[in-house]
Write a protein that binds this DNA or RNA. Structure first.
Lengths: 174, 174
DNA sequence: AAATACGTTCAGTTTACACTGAACGCTATG
DNA sequence: CATAGCGTTCAGTGTAAACTGAACGTATTT
């Protein structure tokens, strides 16, 4: 018997919640994140009150270790946040309802990070290529020039994406 | 000895290309796609002429099976496309240089697909919830109403993302 | 027809990672 | 001080997916 049945009297309502939680798990799994992540968030999102770790464990029937790491992951993305309950040592969590903020911290920020490292990688290659260019004879430069041009285009495209991710217009479209 | 060394006389230039290919592999791997994907594309992107499967195999030192499936994956995303060479039975491929088109087919399209299935899942839950609402007594409805409201918000947010992905402004920002 | 050249497919392997169970550290309580 | 409650950490497990090697089908050449 799970804790959801304790809070929710109607079995139909509980069933609907469970299906939503299951859907959340499938969705996050399809994005390469684990299924527990989506389940935990979905549960907290539907819960009328903040939940502590053990309640989540009992509800989802997953290990406490999974919930612990998952919750910190979600917290890092501003998808859930800590809630202190007076006179209770346990850590309670509730879902962030502002999806826009979630998207910024959970999707755009990590994306920017990866794009940055990609740009840095290309810049390193360009750098070593320019050094190589100096000590090559003319007929080799023709080839190198083509490569250099393509590297430059790749880097500029990455920069364009970065600019887009930082563009304030993007916020307004949400 | 790899084929790149046959096309490119300068060892420094070849080294730079290999580093770029390696970077491509790291990048795609960081996005959950395999590392071969990024390597194959990077190789084709820098190659002055279209390459056939065996040339890619020899260059990257991966199995032919990997290259075969990877190339079809890339082709599906419009990241590379087939090139026929007169009088040659082999399949040659060259990289798409239009990154914008790549982004549309390789990123936005699959993303839209996943968002759609997520919306459908939520709609199913909402549907079954509404059915459940009918046969519940009043005090249960209060709880159900809260859940219904949150489900609706989640669905609307997903719809908003879908709208954003289809928004023509997005194209103009690139 | 036999043999060769290409690309694809499929079973098996290896690798990567989500997840678990148990031990640990910390804090509060008896 | 001992004990219990709570969250975190870490080694180990299980599983999914990337990747491989070999067999296969098809088309081309001799």
């Amino acid at each position: 018997m799970n804790s959801l049945a304790k809070q929710v009297e109607s079995p139909e309502l509980a069933a609907a919640c469970l299906r939503f939680i299951e859907s959340g798990g499938h969705t996050t799994q399809s994005f390469g994140l684990g299924q527990v992540l989506g389940q935990v968030f979905a549960l907290l999102y539907l819960s009328p009150k903040p939940l502590c770790l053990d309640e989540i464990v009992e509800e989802l029937d997953v290990s406490k270790a999974s919930v612990s790491t998952t919750v910190r992951q979600l917290e890092e993305w501003s998808a859930v946040h800590h809630v202190w309950v007076k006179g209770d040592r346990r850590d309670f969590y509730e879902a962030e309802t502002d999806f826009k903020a979630m998207l910024r911290h959970g999707v755009l920020a990590p994306l920017r990070k990866k794009m940055d490292t990609a740009v840095v990688r290309i810049e390193h290659v360009e750098e070593s290529l320019h050094k190589a260019l100096e000590k090559t004879n003319p007929e080799q430069r023709a080839q190198a020039r083509i490569v250099a041009e393509r590297l430059q285009r790749a880097r500029k495209f990455h920069a364009k994406i970065n600019a887009l991710l930082n563009n304030p217009w993007l916020d307004r479209l949400l």
